[in-house]
Design a protein around this nucleic acid. Structure first.
Lengths: 208, 208, 208, 208
DNA sequence: CATGAATGAGGATTCATTCAT
DNA sequence: TATGAATGAATCCTCATTCAT
């Protein structure tokens, strides 16, 4: 358990320590996997003693939840869909895609990798992640898609399903890159334009 | 170590036992995750003794590789791209997508879930999977896309990247479904048409 | 957990192993105390590996309960009050006391020491012991005292309280001996007669 | 290490702090047992910080010794056998018993419970307790018994053994009460008379 | 003196693997 | 080959103790 915040200075120190530990945990988990990583590994990476971790986190699983919460918070802090409505749809879409991929690449790459791995085989964590991250995102996305559909900007497709398909495309390329695809790694910067292109007008040629 | 195949009948029995064990392992791994699952769990699920597993598989990790290989074999046995060339591109695309999703849904859902989880945090397995499954698939897909591009059926996009984007869309919706998205579960049968639609012509309205 | 008894031979082996472990545990617990004793200590004393203990007992606490149950069973197997009714009260009392002290000295000395220590500070175990051992014993004893009282053999004292007082005298000398009193150790064989004497006629001189 | 007493006021404060800590320790030890209790538990109960305890006691074991010493001192402060000699033996015996039980009930119940538990499995503490508390008590008691025996007030029994038997009766009922015997709890006030009766004239009827 | 965060040795428990039957 | 009891290395977690503030 993390110590109770008595005064604001203490609170600062506590947060710093938690951050330090979560950073270490994220790095080591991403490298060796959650289960193959020992508490000693995390402590060593963080440069502290094993026992100290338990002053800030209930147990090893709480580290995972801590990583999830941090990712969640950082997601919510950036208001993804904010700047979308302005420009024409194609431009704003491209911008949004670029921004999203950049954010993911910088911040949460490792964190997401670790979490996804565990989420796939841990129902509890899976449900938590779905409710806290995925569902809210989909709700927001559907709202925008719906508006665009109402405005005739996009085809009258099944909105929820379309949301899944588009989101899936992001998720998919992210995972493919995590899997070590060198093509994606090299051309990562070209991806936003391509994804926007496919998403908006597909791959079919104009002269069929 | 798996026993050496003396005579064909023996070989049959051995394969049957291996299958039995891998089926059990896949089911239990998918439920509890590779690391949280004990050999005893697998043995119990398979209805055999702990020690027996070691007559057919070197160690616990070999079970994972066994699952990978089975998935790999079943992938390759179905010649995915065979029947595509016949009909017009839109129809054949839709058919292909449907077939692929169906295959995945039936066969390898659990197996894939287990593997992916481990692949994300196990470099060795990741490389193996990439080389054995992903890379060959991309090579094949790129060949077809290239042919279609040459025929003017699809736009002159970056073929490898497009391959990743489209494949990513599949992978993504699959994972979203694994994460428990009920929308995808309910409308899974509508998905092939939608994916084909988006992939070919995008979501943009006709009257911009 | 102790393995399930498949066939009677297995059952024999299992019981033997459990006995072996409980014997070891009793000895080491009595020497170092329950909490200062490690599972490794018990295993070493029993000449087996640490892990083996967990094939027969759920956890360390279960060892304590195992000791309690064994003591309990051995108590009940000997029908203490059986032979009392025969001879005259003084003789039979003396015999009974002698038998009880002997039984305790041989069998359960260490076991009782260990249990008592823990019982004093572990409410759960205390209640268990009281219900399983003490209460039944008192019930039986009260029955006999009552009969003797009805027959005029003993004074019309408060029966339950008298039972406690007499039982307490046994318990007390036992504990004093456990505490290392050399007087009691040397004259342990003289004790039954003395206790019978005090219990029956007190210490007061005849000529007051 | 307890701070060195500089001036008498300091000394007062130090003693107060030690008392505060020992009170807390006694209460918590009695509730959860010495080993299951953490220093943090004691500190919390005492309303101070963990580290402060180490300013007054060498280590956790020293707390136990502190409790023992306090009990010891309080025992010796009351000169138990002082007022016995006055009245006739039966009356004075009854008074003495009553006083002893009362003292124990009020003061040292919990302390004694904790100590006894540990004494049973800790040779070092056991020897200490025996030498400091039990042996002196027995020496004193034997002296009185001897005098009474010389005066013909009590039978010419083996004095040391009789001392153990009588003391054991006290110890025994005390422990039975600690074990939760409700009979003893309810009739605790009737006990002195009963114990005196049994001790002096036994339970045997007058007309055998 | 008081505090309480940091420490790290210690111990209960798990479980992959072995091997005698 | 099948079994499952035995093994003991590995690891999570606790907690007595220290010490900088």
């Amino acid at each position: 358990m993390s110590p109770k915040p008595n005064d604001p200075v203490q609170e600062q120190l506590i947060q710093a320590r938690r951050t330090q530990i979560l950073d270490a945990a994220t790095a080591v988990f991403a490298d060796k996997g959650f289960h193959r990583t020992t508490i000693k590994d995390v402590a060593k990476e963080a440069g502290i003693a094993d026992g100290t971790i338990y002053n800030y986190f209930e147990n090893k699983t709480a580290l995972l939840l801590g990583i999830l919460n941090r990712l969640n918070e950082s997601e919510q802090r950036e208001e993804h869909f904010a700047q979308v409505a302005d420009a024409d749809m194609r431009t704003s879409t491209r911008n949004y895609i670029r921004q999203r991929l950049e954010v993911m690449t910088q911040n949460g790459f490792q964190a997401f990798q670790v979490l996804l791995s565990e989420i796939l085989v841990n129902k509890e964590l899976r449900d938590l992640y779905y409710q806290q991250v995925i569902e809210p995102t989909f709700m927001l996305a559907e709202k925008y898609y719906q508006r665009w559909a109402d405005e005739g900007l996009i085809k009258p497709l099944d909105i929820p399903l379309t949301t899944r398909a588009i989101s899936g495309m992001f998720l998919g390329v992210l995972i493919l890159r995590m899997m070590g695809d060198s093509e994606l790694e090299q051309k990562w910067d070209d991806l936003p334009d391509l994804l926007a292109e496919i998403m908006l007008t597909g791959i079919e040629g104009d002269q069929p």
